[in-house]
Nucleic acid binder design. Sequence first.
DNA 1: AAAGTATGTCGCAAATATACGACATACAAT
DNA 2: ATTGTATGTCGTATATTTGCGACATACTTT
Lengths: 116, 116
Amino acid sequence: MTYAKTAAFTANQQQLARVAKALAHPARVAIIQLLASKQTCISGDIAAELPLSRTTVSQHLQELKTLDLIRGEIDGLTVCYCLNTDLLLQVQQQFTAFFIEATSGAACGPADACAC
Amino acid sequence: MTYAKTAAFTANQQQLARVAKALAHPARVAIIQLLASKQTCISGDIAAELPLSRTTVSQHLQELKTLDLIRGEIDGLTVCYCLNTDLLLQVQQQFTAFFIEATSGAACGPADACAC
DNA sequence: AAAGTATGTCGCAAATATACGACATACAAT
DNA sequence: ATTGTATGTCGTATATTTGCGACATACTTT
């Protein structure tokens, strides 16, 4: 296996990377924004709003669903997707903590060895 | 081109996805955390601390550098990397805004059509 | 029952990402 | 000048992602 040495990293790093990967495509960002903006949970309308084929959108939806960031509820013929707000709040905190950690450090102050 | 229809998405969505992609690998998350924790900007020591070959780490560094999330300063034989704190702060705000947008919405309240 | 509609899954093609050895470059030290 | 060290780049193999057409499934409607 010349791939995926993820096992050697922290659980935190892996989790952060996993969620980041879910957001690493504009279509998936757009889907989440769509679900957040629409008051009702839309279904195949999502595909209609995106510049991608229905198949591709369905796959992006499945990816988000696998991570449990969104959930689908079958309602007769259509499927109703909506955000998992609880998980999103957790993820938000995780990202916030990461960014605070990354930005609070003096990170090479003027007295340090290098001057970048 | 059966790939990268990114042009059809918002600049905001693309930017968010671009940064998310940078964080979509545990090694890159680890690199940022390392640079944040070490008071001095380390260089090849980064490679030594990660469970990856020097070559691979170098590539991850280049990726982060391309996005300007980190910067390198040549100091004789070694190269000094450090975080671009300013950009990281911007990115942090962008992510925060996104998560607030995603989590503040009622997102399928009890009165809505579907019950997820 | 038959036809229509909304979704999901499969299979394929092309693009990217990941990982690393081998080589090139650049500076330091002798 | 020659040798050694620290980094970066290139080439390559493999894994994964992306995108979509074609098909399968499930439910609704007539």
